[in-house]
Structure formats: C-alpha cells, structure tokens
Simulated assay, not measured.
Amino acid sequence: MPAPFTFVRLQYHSGDWDGVDERMPTNLLHSLIQYTKVPVTSKEKVVALDSPELFNYPFCYLSGHRLVQFSAQEKKNFTQYVRNGGFVFVDDCNHDIDGLFARSFEEQMRQCFGAGALKKIPKTHPVYSSFFTFKDGPPPTSFELNGWGDDLVHDYLKGIEINGRLGVLYSNKDYGCEWDYDFRNKRFLAEDNTKFGVNILIYALTA
C-alpha cells in the first residue's frame, strides 16, 4: 500500500506563512477522498523550510501576504528539494503581481534558479488535464472577478520546470483563500471550485 498523502505547509522565517487559508488543506484533502483513490493523512503538516524533514514529502505548499526572504539554509533546501523532484505550490494571497509577496518571492526564485527560470506555463500544460480538464487554463477566482488586489483576471500561472517536469507552480490568483472554507459547504456551490486543486495534487504525485 502506498504511504498516505500528506499536505505539507512550509514554514519560513520571513512573512506570514501561518496567517492564511487555515481550512484550505482540509478542503482539498476532502476533495482527494471524494474524487480519487489516493490515501490521505487527514490533517496538514507544518514543516520548516530549513529542516531536512522537508525531503520526506513529495508536495509542499507555500503562501502569504508579506515579504518572502529565505535564509541561506531555506534557499538551499528549496532549491535542492525542487531539483530532486519535489513539488511546491506557491500562492500569492494578495492577488497582486506588483505586491510585496509577489515581488519578493519572484526574487527568491531568481536567486535559487536563475533569471528567467520562472515562466508562464501554457494552457496546454498537463497540470490542466491531470485529472479534470481545464481547456481554458487556470480557472478564475472570485477575488479576481470581484476586483480584489490588482483588479486583474490572470489567465496564466507561472512555473519552474526541472528536466521537463514542473517543480514550482506559482499563482497570483489567491486559490488558497478561494478554497478556504469548510468542505461541507461545497454542496452549496453550482460547481466544486476545488477541482483544480485536485489537478495540482495529482500532478505533483504522478508527473
């Protein structure tokens, strides 16, 4: 039997990693149970980015609103984790491509992987068809449609590929807050908006 999937949230020394989307992991784990046969651990696990424990898990989530400035060990671990085949989903809770989180995180990626490593990914990328199909690329969030943040609907996500595989998936769409609700309330939605979250997790586990 495969080991149960664990939703890992990354703790980093700067910013506000622990002040965002507290219910989102449970919501996505419920969706995995609902739609797939992937065994899961029922609660998220917080792992420090500068800890060697990071390398025990295939998927990690990093988010926040504020400055992202990795320590030397955090930078080393992040780079090695991705180059070794790990997957990090990064979500900008500001929904603002010119905001502090976005500018500082993108600078960290430049320092870790080089200028130009973080690129827009095409709508034909396998992450949009790894389980459910999203022909138009990343689905919009209510925060975009309601004019939150930079008041733009971003029709793309960015990523860093290592040897043809996506190792970092980066969103300015604020999916974390979009999915931050009690999973029992999904029954009131016309369409389950966590389905793209399932795609992200399945891609991370199978690509």
Rank of each mutant, 00 (worst) to 15 (best):
V90Q: 04
E178T: 13
D98N: 09
E161K: 04
I160Y: 04
C60Q: 03
R9P: 09
Q80V: 15
R103Y: 13
H95I: 09
D182N: 14
D182Y: 13
T79F: 08
P58L: 07
Q111P: 04
N172M: 03
D182V: 12
P52M: 15
W148R: 10
Y35P: 04
R23S: 08
Q69V: 02
N94Y: 03
G176Q: 00
Q80S: 12
K37W: 05
L10M: 06
K135E: 03
K158R: 10
K123D: 15
G159C: 07
E191G: 04
F59M: 13
D98L: 12
K45F: 13
G19Y: 00
Q80G: 05
Y170A: 08
S142M: 12
S71R: 04
Q34H: 11
V127E: 01
L169G: 02
Y175R: 05
E106Y: 09
S31I: 03
F143K: 06
L62R: 07
A72T: 10
N199M: 11
F7V: 04
P25G: 07
L62C: 13
F5N: 01
V38H: 01
I121S: 02
V40K: 03
H65E: 12
A204C: 13
G116A: 14
N27R: 13
H95T: 05
L145F: 09
C112Y: 10
F196E: 01
V198E: 01
P126L: 06
V20D: 03
E106H: 09
Y203Q: 14
P138F: 10
P52Q: 07
Y128R: 02
F196D: 06
K119P: 07
M1P: 07
E74K: 05
I202V: 13
N199Q: 04
C177D: 11
V153T: 14
N172Y: 08
S51Q: 04
E144Q: 15
S171L: 10
F196H: 12
Q11I: 14
N77L: 04
F188L: 12
G19I: 08
R83L: 11
G85F: 04
Q108Y: 01
D16T: 00
I97V: 05
G147N: 08
S71Q: 15
T124H: 03
E178W: 01
T6W: 02
